[in-house]
Write a protein that binds this DNA or RNA. Structure first.
Length: 492
RNA sequence: CGGGAGGUAGUUCAGCCCGGUAGAAUACCUGGUUUGGGACCAGGGGGUCGCAGGUUCGAAUCCUGUCCUCCCGACCA
């Protein structure tokens, strides 16, 4: 069949692409580096987005929307941030096209329409937002200002991969302003925890909370906190970041407030974001050689019902029962799909929904109806069982929770097995080459050493875990003294 | 942006070397038989051969340019 999936062991990259394309999450588009998110993929994103949005609101944030375009002069105001993104910015230079006099039906950029000031298509919105906050903030009474926006951003990437790295992607970016440093740091950490909770509880994706080293830090940030996840091929993936921006943007955009003592102070800032990249993480963390495996809490459909019938008459009987079950499941808050499409036969549907990662599948035929039972199959374990119809809804609710927990536990066990200590360079390289995963090793704390390791080992410091144990040791490369281990990995 | 591969029916691909009426499988449509792990029979529709130039009596095939994709690197969420 055309829908066969490449095995992970054969070609991991191709396997990933197969899941995304054949699982109907996304498609390639006519635009270089950009993808089309298909309805099934977008439904997944909507579930993720809604859960996160609720968590943001529960922590006091409000949504707003800022422009796609950033005047170049604003963009360059915060120097480090501007430099950090300069190489990947799309720039609008003209605002009009006109008919090409030499080629009928073709258009030309109208040279008359050159913009006086170029517009940068936002790679992130700090500049436009902070220039706005300047007007919004006057006194300590305006603080904290807790804003989030759901938006698209553009980063001109050299090499793209569906969901993991595309030129345009969807994300949310929180931008907050605070009266004190302590409060801003607390906000940064709070939002990191929101991300970690979301990843673990909704995506069943265990993550390591940590701090980035200086060279991996967001341009313009004082500290970048992150959650790092581990994929099945042993590579790490940054799943979310939360930045303590200090007063860098406040100073760049002159955002001051009057404190209780009637004195002007610069505000303290944070920003934090997660993107559609999380979908890539989800695919690679749980998928198998049969297709996607989606965690019940965010799966577009949690249950699919496949009727098995012989002829119109039996179909009508099964339809009626299925509709009844649907109503009951929906009333219990379960997202369910009934596939009575007559074009495809049961076996085809089974394979199709396994590809799409629907957590539970119910198959029901006349025989089952006579016996008042139903066949239930679990996507994650491939287990099948025949259950009484009686009490089915409760059983399904329990099973969905079980699957959610089981996916998390499986991923967590894999990750635990793949955090390995290395105490010599040879061991370090061997672990990266042969085992993969995170390698916990000592590092002398300098950017130079980090750079050399990156070049030689093709691995980066993913993070310094929060609440890291202090342990005296010697740097894996230079042998210089080190106070703690950090996590290295090859990464996406 | 460098190296490699590729773009022909909705999809997967053959045809290209050696120019001469565009093919297969599958999907789709119609009818029928079917339906408990990717059904079968019969009939049918569907392609400006990525796009633009050029060579030629004639181009999917040769030449040039360009766009898009995949894989591997460098850059990055």
């Amino acid at each position: 069949m055309s829908k066969e999936i490449t095995a992970r062991s054969e070609d991991y990259s191709q396997w990933y692409n197969d899941l995304v394309i054949k699982g109907s999450l996304a498609d390639y588009s006519a635009v270089r580096g950009c993808m089309v998110i298909k309805p099934y993929g977008f439904a997944l994103w909507e579930n993720m987005r809604d859960a996160l949005d609720k968590m943001f609101k529960e922590t006091g944030h409000q949504n707003a929307y800022f422009p796609l375009f950033v005047p170049k002069s604003l963009f360059e105001a915060e120097e480090k941030n501007a430099e950090g993104f300069a190489k990947e910015c799309a720039v609008v230079t003209h605002y009009r096209l006109k008919a090409d006099p030499d080629h009928k039906g073709k258009l030309l950029v109208d040279p008359e329409s050159k913009l006086e000031e170029e517009l940068v298509v936002r790679p992130t919105s700090e500049a436009i937002i902070w220039s706005t906050y300047k007007d919004w903030i006057q006194s300590y009474r305006d603080l904290p200002l807790l804003i989030n926006q759901w938006a698209n951003v553009v980063r001109w990437e050299m090499r793209t991969r569906l969901f993991l790295r595309t030129t345009e992607f969807l994300w949310q970016e929180g931008h907050t302003a605070h009266a004190t440093e302590e409060e801003a740091i607390a906000e940064t950490k709070k939002m990191l925890e929101v991300y970690a909770t979301f990843a673990e509880e909704f995506m069943a994706l265990p993550v390591i909370r940590g701090v980035k080293t200086e060279s991996e830090r967001f341009a313009g940030a004082v500290d970048t906190y992150c959650i790092e996840a581990l994929m099945q091929d042993g590579k790490a993936l940054q799943a979310g970041t939360s930045h303590f921006l200090g007063q860098n943007f406040a100073k760049a955009f002159d955002v001051k407030f009057l404190n209780k003592e009637n004195k002007q102070e610069y505000v303290w800032a944070t920003s934090w974001g997660v993107s559609t990249r999380l979908i890539g993480a989800l695919v690679m963390a749980h998928g198998d050689d049969k297709g996607l495996v989606l965690p019940p809490r965010i799966a577009p459909f949690q249950v699919v019902i496949v009727p098995i019938y012989k002829g119109e008459e039996s179909k009508a009987v099964i339809d009626a029962k299925a509709q009844e079950m649907m109503k009951e499941l929906q009333a219990a808050g379960i997202r369910v799909k009934y596939d009575d499409n007559d074009n495809a036969r049961p076996g085809w549907k089974f394979a199709e929904y396994e590809m799409k990662g629907i957590p539970l599948r119910l198959a029901m035929g006349l025989r089952d109806m006579e016996n008042k039972v139903i066949e239930l199959a679990r996507r994650d374990t491939s287990e099948k069982q025949v259950l009484p119809m009686e009490g089915l809804t409760e059983k399904i609710k329990t099973l969905l929770e079980e699957i959610q927990a089981s996916l998390y536990n499986k991923a967590a066990a894999y990750r635990e097995e793949h955090i390995t200590k290395a105490d010599s360079w040879d061991e370090f390289i061997q672990l990266l080459d042969e085992k993969g995963g995170f390698v916990s090793a000592h590092w002398d704390g300098t950017a130079d050493t980090e750079e050399v390791i990156k070049e030689k080992a093709k691995a980066t410091i993913r993070c310094i875990p929060l609440h890291n144990e202090k342990e005296e040791g010697q740097c894996i490369l230079t042998g210089k003294p080190s106070a703690q281990r950090v996590l290295f990995a090859r990464a996406y």
